[in-house]
Amino acid sequence: MPATPVADLELDLDAFEGPFDLLLTLLLAENLEPREVDVAAIVVAFVERLEGRGEVDLEACGEFLVLIAALLELKARLLFPEEAAELEGLEPEQAAEELARRLAEYRRMKEAATWLAERLASQRDRWFRLGPAPLQPRGERRLAPQPPAALAEAIRALATPPPSVSLAHMALRFPPVSQFLERFRALLARRSRFDFEQEVGGLSRVEQAVAFLALLELRKTGEIALSQPAPFAPIRVSRADSERTPQWTARSA
């Protein structure tokens, strides 16, 4: 990578001291833990340096944005391994590969953009007419002649009032939420966790909805912890005390 104003940006972080390109290289080579890198501090360092120069180098800003975004993505993946299904099980090695792949892809597109710019410049002496193409509308379908009686019959069928809406569901009886509260509490007294779907599998739709309300109630009171790896995946219910404590903090992100 050629030396650019971004690559030799000097950083003084808790976890790392040196130029930005070395930091990136160490991350790619897995010699440095991404979670220890304070991204905000890098941004501050870059902004301070920009200010020190007294002029805005758009090229450098653009490159910095791409690199810092790639770094953030790499870090996010390692901090939240199960965040997105497509990235599940992505090892640091693969994440590094992915970062290199993306940088290369972006570089290729940059080259393609350069090619387009040169191409455009070479076409400057080609002049042609521009404007909306005045083409005849095509594919127009002509209707076959219809007997008036048949048309009237068709309209009559459309004019029939719609069937009245059934209100049968208004009379539905809901089981009490407390019933499920007790059931789930009893269950968690015996086991540390269970799958929501398994527990309510045999119940009616309305009962399942009430059971879900009970679940939310228990979550609100802090008695349980809920986890779902992906939208529509099974909901896992566990006792609040058995919940895994996160290793990271807002500060480290």
Partner: peptide, 26 residues
């Protein structure tokens, strides 16, 4: 009629190798 992307820039592996070379040199 667009040029092939491969002809325009190096591939991901090349880029990664160069990054690692820089790391080793340092």
């Amino acid at each position: 009629a667009l040029p092939r992307l491969d002809d325009l820039a190096e591939d991901a592996e090349g880029l990664r190798d160069r990054l690692l070379e820089v790391a080793e040199a340092r």
